[in-house]
Each structure stands twice: as C-alpha cells, then as structure tokens.
Nucleic acid binder design. Structure first.
Length: 452
RNA sequence: GGCGCGAUGACAGAGUGGUUAUGUAGCGGACUGCAACUCCGUCCACGCCGGUUCGAUUCCGACUCGCGCCUCCA
C-alpha cells in the first residue's frame, strides 16, 4: 500500500520496520474541554488508517497520548494554563477536569465506531521520562534556561522546520507575539517553572518546581512505547508547523534522526466560512445525537472526502450522508446471508483504500456493487467485507421502534377508513399520526409506522 | 506583515490531456386512493484571462476570490 508522507511531501510505498507489527503514534486530545466535530474528524482518519492496515494483514501497535497536563494557552509559552483555567471555571480540580473530558472523548469515539488504541498513555503518568529526555537534551547542548523555563535552542539544529518548510527568517520578521526571553521565535519550552502561586499540577525537577512543555510528552512517550524510530506518526494539520516540528527537533537533538518513517496529517473540517476551534465556534457530536442524528452519518460524511482535503460541514451535507447511510442499511437488511465475495469488486476497493486511503472512491465502488449484476447475497457479503474499513455498522438491523398505543389505535382507525375508501378521513388520521412523530408507509402487507 | 494551500454542477465531494466518479437534492415516468418506500430514466460543472497542444476542467503564467498557519486548535 501507498501513503502520503508530509515530511517528504510525496506518496511512498509503505514498508513497515518490523514484519510483526506496525508502530503507529497518534497525537491525542488535550482533555480540558469536549472534542468538537473537527477534532473527531481527525480521529476518524486515524481509525481508517488503522483499519486499512489491519485489512492488509498488519498487526497494530497503536499508541495515543492523553494530554492531561495544563500547559499554557499559547505556543509562545505565555498566557494562562488551559487546564487550570477550566478547573477554576467549573470549580473542580485540574485532575477531575482531565478525567471527566477523557471519558467524554472516549464516549464520542465509541459512537463513531473508532477502535481504541492498543496503548493509551497520559502525560502526567510519564513525568520522569520527560525529565530524563530534557536532561539528555541539556547534556547534548540543545537547551538554555531563562527566568521562566528551560528552552530548546532551535538555532543549534540546522534542519529545524524541514517538515513544515518553515521559513525561520520570515517567521522571525512576521511574528505577532512577543517572544519574551527566547532567543529565537521558534525556540520552545521543555520545562516551565511554576508561575506565581501554586499550580494544581506541578512536579520537582533538576531545574525546580514546574511542569513539562507541551511537545516533550509525545517524544518521551512515543520513544518509551515504540522506540526512537517507528513507522507512522499522525496528527492534525495544525501540528505540522509547531508541535511536530518540535517533536522532530527533540528527537534529532537526542538521537540525530527524526522519529517516524511516515508523517500523516488529517485536514480540518470547516464549518461554513468559520473554522472550528475550542476557543471559538464549536460543534459537538452529542448535540447532533440529541437532534436525532445517527453518529455514523457523520462518519459516512467524513468518508466521502479525502483526509487530506478540507471538508465543508453543514447540516445539509450531514442530511445527505444520513439518507445515503439509511438506504444502505435498509438494502443490506433485506438481502440474504451466505453470499460470496466478489473478487473483482474487492480488488477495486482495496486498490482505492491502499492508495493513500481514497475513501471517496471506495464508497463509489460500494455503490457500484449495489447496482451490479451480483446476487443480493454476494452483494451483501462483499459490502460487509468493505465495512471492516468503513465501519458503518451496515449489518445492523433497522431499529425496532416501540410505537405508542395511541399511534397504533390511530393507525388501526386509518386502516378501517382506507378499507371503506374514506380517503379524506384516512389523510386526516395520517396527519395526526405524523404529529405524534411517526410516518406512515402503506404496503401490501399493511401499514408500516416509522419514527421520524 | 511572513509562509503555505485551494477554486468542480443546487449541496457535499472524487477524478482526468480527448471517453467528464459517487451520494443527496431536482425533474420525468412506473407503483400508490393520494403519499411514503422502491424501481426506471434524466438535467446541471470544471473562477477569470492568456500560453503550450490536433485537443485543457486537467499542464504553465498572470489575475480575482477564498482558506489555513504564524494566538487556542485536530
């Protein structure tokens, strides 16, 4: 299979380091708030990647971090701590906040059919590893200290910023934030001293009481669980210029090479003209579920676009995805089991997904199967094979609704009216049933009631 | 201000130097008491101006517009 590597800006054949398993590190959430739909798109991308690798026969060693340390509100290493701010707002401890939003995050992943990583690691549970990492960088001469922390000296690394094609001079000139005591705009904190007053989260270190910088946790934990060279590192596109550039710098500072063979990035979901963000506009999966949407309709919508292009979210687009998904599950539920895979369609499907995860084309293959000359049983078997990657739960039976007695009574009355050809009365009864939230569909076997 | 990316039909979104996905919506028809569902058929596109070419939506250049990052962010 072939995957796009941001570092080389090219598609390359994927060859794992070990035949035993694929090592995959995914940047996880900072758990100080709910994940919005944009965040979730990124985890859907990782899930598709993982399922495609698995369908190709690879075992996965999938590690994801949970950033439960506060850090600061800006990459300029200044401003207020997000976690502590959230804690103060809600009157809870920073630790409680982290635990609460971590659970909410995994609930969302479950709704979307996203597989859990094989290893989940929390930043607060790996403080010694992070301190050790900084110590080694210090010994190797890549750090300097200011009044508020220990910083990585990016000037010591000629290759700094290659991933993002950063123009250091340009950044320096165009910087919109005060760089404080930092020597260079791209320098970043490895360890921060506790500011005035006590923080809820702080630890002792060779440099004093404080807390780790944002980027060091990923370097320390990926190395602990996957070694200093692993197969794939994934994250959102926003991580390219800062977070991942800094992770590479840290690894090069310690090992003289960058940590991953492939860097893959999921692109943003956009809401109209506005970008989703945690501080500004946000849209939650739980809101859609409360409005009656199947969460997997969102998954379908995400699959209709390629992970490396922006996706314009709208309720209209979600509706069209929901309709398409409903039609598919309905079709599948009416087809018999026991069919055989279509070798040709499976080949086409694999060709799509193995070519840098082309899920839009893969869905087109799926629809081609539904319209093909195959038997219904073979169509079903083939499509369910695809569903190992799509994970749209296409095999589920349509939900059996509990219909209130009042609705059943009205439906019975309507049947009688229809039998008597009292069409006007029949239509009025249908209106009444509709107001109670049920649609009426007549069939030769009687009428079918479906919740709207 | 600096760096990068993109402009495809009503919407979302693929792809391609000539045969122009896919889904939803629309339209026409079948079915239905009327609908819904389903089925059959069908319309609509490649921002603008030049260039290369037998031929460009696809390649190159300018322009216009939009977006992302350089604050938080997936």
């Amino acid at each position: 299979m072939e995957l796009y590597d941001t570092y080389r800006r090219e598609i390359h054949k994927f060859i794992p380091i070990s035949k035993e398993s694929v090592s995959l590190y995914a940047c996880g959430p900072t758990v100080y708030d709910y994940a919005h739909l944009g965040n979730l798109r990124s985890y859907l991308f990782v899930d598709v990647l993982r399922r495609v690798l698995e369908l190709n026969g690879f075992q996965l060693n999938h590690v994801m971090n949970i950033t439960d340390v506060g850090h600061l509100t800006s990459d300029a290493d200044s401003g207020e701590d997000k976690m502590e701010k959230g804690a103060r707002k809600q009157g809870k401890s920073a630790w409680d906040i982290a635990k609460f939003f971590e659970k909410a995050f995994f609930d969302d992943l479950d709704y979307l059919g996203i597989k859990r990583p094989t290893t989940i690691c929390r930043a607060t549970e790996h403080i010694p590893e992070q301190i050790e990492y900084v110590e080694i960088l210090q010994q190797r001469g890549y750090t300097y200290q200011t009044s508020d922390g220990v910083y990585f000296d990016t000037a010591k690394l000629p290759s700094y910023g290659k991933l993002a094609k950063l123009d250091i001079e340009g950044l320096q000139a165009g910087a919109r934030v005060d760089i404080g005591e930092k020597k260079r705009v791209t320098d970043f904190a490895l360890w921060k001293f506790s500011p005035d007053g006590q923080r809820q989260m702080q630890w002792s270190s060779p440099w004093g009481e404080g807390f780790p910088g944002w980027h060091i946790e990923c370097s320390a934990m990926s190395e602990k669980y996957l070694g200093n060279k692993f197969d794939i590192h994934v994250g959102g596109e926003d991580h390219i210029p800062v977070h991942h550039s800094n992770e590479i710098a840290q690894c090069e500072g310690r090992h003289d090479h960058q940590p991953a063979n492939f860097w893959m990035h999921g692109y943003f979901l956009q809401l109209g003209k506005e970008k989703l963000s945690k501080s500004g506009k946000s849209l939650l999966l739980s809101e859609l579920i409360n409005q009656g949407y199947d969460p997997l309709a969102f998954r379908y919508l995400v699959l209709t676009s390629h992970y490396r292009s922006h996706l314009q979210f709208s309720i209209k687009a979600l509706d069209s995805a929901a309709t398409a998904l409903k039609r598919l599950t309905k079709m599948l539920s009416q087809w018999p089991d026991g069919g055989e895979l279509s070798v040709e369609f499976v080949r086409q499907f694999m060709q799509c997904i193995n070519s840098d995860l082309k899920t839009p084309q893969a869905l087109a293959v799926l629809w081609a199967v539904t319209k093909s000359a195959l038997s219904d049983a073979d169509k079903k078997a083939t499509i369910l094979y695809f569903d190992q990657v799509l994970a749209l739960s296409l095999e589920r039976q349509p939900v059996v609704e509990t219909v209130p007695q009042a609705v059943l009574d009205l439906a019975e009355q309507r049947q009688q009216a229809r039998a008597a050809k009292h069409w006007q009365q029949s239509d009025e009864l249908r209106e009444q049933i509709l107001k109670l939230g049920f649609a009426v569909k007549d069939s030769p076997q009687g009428c079918i009631l479906a919740k709207i």
